[in-house]
Design a protein around this nucleic acid. Structure first.
Length: 589
RNA sequence: GCGCCCGUAGCUCAGCUGGAUAGAGCUUCGGCCUCCGAAGCCGAAGGUCAGAGGUUCGAAUCCUCUCGGGCGUACCA
């Protein structure tokens, strides 16, 4: 409880190869007269810009400065003193750089045995002691689960798996929007125009229709908003009244309806504690704010000013009419999460348009001198856009109306996959299952492909095309590898029986596999699943290229065995990578 | 107005926190299925990294300004 939350300083999953290289480099640096600590800090081993240079590169600018030599001079001297061994093949100076190369057999052995053992970072790591709370998806009840909700759901789901993979204890939370004014507006609409039998037929769609009508009519009739505010007050009074019963009904129906998309997207939660969960926790939270002395009255509302933190707009915690706000509930939620989970990080996977909200939340906690303030991290993402008739990008709109149910999008993608299967693999078994797996994955993959802050530009022409950097492309690589293993009609040989020297020609595949750990690590640190997506695309590409010139089944026994192991390992790692994204890897497609 | 984000090939984007000749995919064009899956592979074409200054050995990356686009700006979430 007294532990100050801090940014993840997680153990970096360095491979044995890198560890070996680093130790060796450090000992040479010390023999060259550099103090250990200085050498440690200045020894920045990084991937070379150009793969042809080597496996690992070292820019010697900082190191050279420490000993007062020019970088090229230093690099030459340093490289000369590195002696090749069973792991390290060479160290070559190139101007101010030193390029290292691993022994190919050692590279293959290290990567493949680790992958096959499921050892970290290729498999799930042992506990790293980190606790991460992730708040994602969080749709509003009684509204359709539409394309806009998908981003938070899919990004959050991926982050949850990525942190788990790295050994963190993760609490995935669906902070349902089941409280507040939107719901009260819907209730108002129902009381005016609602029809019980219509509601029973298709609650979600019907309520959405009513909500749209409300939005339209409220423009000319502000009295509706006043009425809604009253309903919200009645709801928040805690009394078992009409409002509460209706709220319960809509919440239950919504959860039922949301389960559809969640199942299809393979997203799960550890807790569904929506805003309503904090109904009885807000007063205590407000007390805490009062006691910290930062709460002020402004125009009858209770606010916290944040000017000293560079935020002009105050954070409103209670309205003039005494009811609470989004902020109040998020504040109560932050306290609850702190005492319940003791997290190092709390990630809020919420659209970029809500940046101010989270700056304010963090700001209030900061002004209150609450340590949990440091753990609060907004993970923003861009909008989903579609092309309008003038072929300009704008907020997603269907051809027919405004909001689009996610199911409709997924169905359309699955339908396209059915066509492709009929064309390319009509004999396939389980066509329906595979179509669902591939179609839904194409949508998910498209969403996780680019940096999350970029808007997702969603057009059917791109989605219809399953070539290049797409979900189906990676799945296809898996299926192809599975096909080879199937046709081998033998068990994949144990790594202990492999002559790894036979895999010298697979260096590009192996080096890409070697990058997996750092990619997952960076994805977690930056809350950026697209790093994993890119990694998986790269590996699929390398293995596709490799298979062109290197046949497996027809090769000499020693070569065949080694390649079978490579194929199996690549398949496993691709499957793992995809699974982090929430994407299955069918054996045939 | 103020704040934040984005601007890299015709289009959609990478570029691992300041390093070597700026890379992919789509599109276009040209090749590759008697050979483990062509949803694939190989090649070609395509660039004033929005613009101008600055910081330094070195800038797409950091700072300042300008332009363009988006989002947000107290009783919604």
């Amino acid at each position: 409880m007294k532990d100050r939350p801090c940014r993840a300083t997680v153990f970096s999953p360095m491979s044995e190869l890198h560890r070996h290289l680093r130790l060796k480099a450090l000992s040479v640096l010390q023999s060259m007269g550099l103090p250990e600590a200085a050498a440690e800090a200045a020894l920045r081993l990084e991937p070379p810009k150009n793969k042809d240079h080597g496996d690992v590169a070292l820019g010697t600018f900082a190191l050279a400065k420490l000993v007062g030599k020019t970088p090229p001079q230093f690099a030459a001297e340093f490289a000369q003193q590195i002696v090749a061994d069973g792991v390290l093949a060479s160290a070559a100076a190139a101007g101010p750089f030193v390029n290292f190369k691993f022994q190919r057999a050692a590279l293959a052995k290290d990567v493949l045995t680790m992958v096959m053992r499921g050892a970290a970072p290729y498999g799930i790591a042992a506990s790293n002691g980190q606790v991460v709370v992730i708040d994602y998806s969080s749709p509003n009840i009684a509204k359709p689960f539409h394309i806009g909700h998908m981003r938070s759901t899919v990004i959050g789901g991926a982050l949850r798996r990525i942190h788990r993979h790295l050994g963190a204890t993760v609490h995935g939370i669906n902070h349902l929007g089941d409280w507040g004014m939107p719901f009260a507006k819907m209730m108002t609409a129902y009381m005016h125009w609602g029809d019980e039998t219509e509601l029973a037929k298709a609650p979600m769609r019907y309520m959405f229709e009513l909500y749209k009508r409300y939005s339209k009519e409220a423009k000319d009739n502000p009295a509706l908003d006043d009425e809604a505010a009253k309903h919200f007050q009645a709801l928040e009074s805690g009394v078992d009244n009409q409002e509460r019963r209706m709220w319960q009904f809509l919440r239950d129906e919504s959860l039922k309806a949301f389960q559809g998309p969640y199942d299809r997207l393979a997203v799960t939660f550890d807790a569904i504690t929506g805003e309503s969960f904090f109904e009885d926790k807000m007063e205590a939270a407000m007390q805490r704010v009062v006691q910290s002395g930062v709460l002020e009255l402004s125009d009858g509302a209770e606010v916290v000013w944040l000017k000293e933190l560079g935020i002009k707009e105050p954070c409103l915690l209670r309205k003039r009419d005494g009811t609470t706000l989004y902020h109040t509930r998020d504040l109560a939620a932050a306290f609850y999460r702190e005492s319940t989970y003791h997290p190092n990080r709390i990630l809020y996977v919420v659209g970029a348009e809500q940046k101010l909200h989270f700056d304010q939340l963090k700001g209030v906690l900061t002004r209150m001198k609450e340590p949990i303030a440091l753990a609060v991290e907004h993970v923003p993402f861009g909008l989903v856009l579609s092309k309008n008739p003038e072929s300009k990008w704008e907020k997603f709109a269907s051809r027919a109306g405004n909001a689009v149910f996610l199911d409709e999008i997924l169905d359309e993608a699955v339908q396209k996959v059915r066509q492709v299967i009929a064309e390319k693999n009509p004999e396939l078994e389980d066509k329906e299952k595979v179509a669902e797996q591939v179609g839904v994955s194409a949508i998910i993959f498209n969403d996780l492909k680019n940096s999350r802050i970029k808007d997702v530009k969603f057009d059917w022409e791109t989605m219809l095309n399953f070539e290049g950097e797409t979900g189906p492309y990676v799945q296809y690589a898996c299926a192809r590898l599975s096909g080879i293993l199937r046709k081998a009609e033998q068990a994949v040989p144990d790594a202990s029986k492999i002559d790894f020297a036979q895999l010298a020609d697979a260096e590009r595949v192996l080096l890409t596999m070697l990058d997996f750990g750092s990619a997952v690590q960076r994805a977690a640190e930056q809350s950026e699943p697209s790093i994993v997506t890119a990694q998986v695309i790269a590996l699929a590409g390398e293995i596709h290229s490799y298979l062109r010139d290197h046949h497996v089944l027809g090769a000499e026994p020693a070569v065949r065995d080694a390649r079978l192991l490579l194929v199996d390992a690549a398949r496993r790692l691709l499957t793992t990578g995809l699974s982090l994204l929430g994407i299955p890897a069918p054996e045939r497609m």
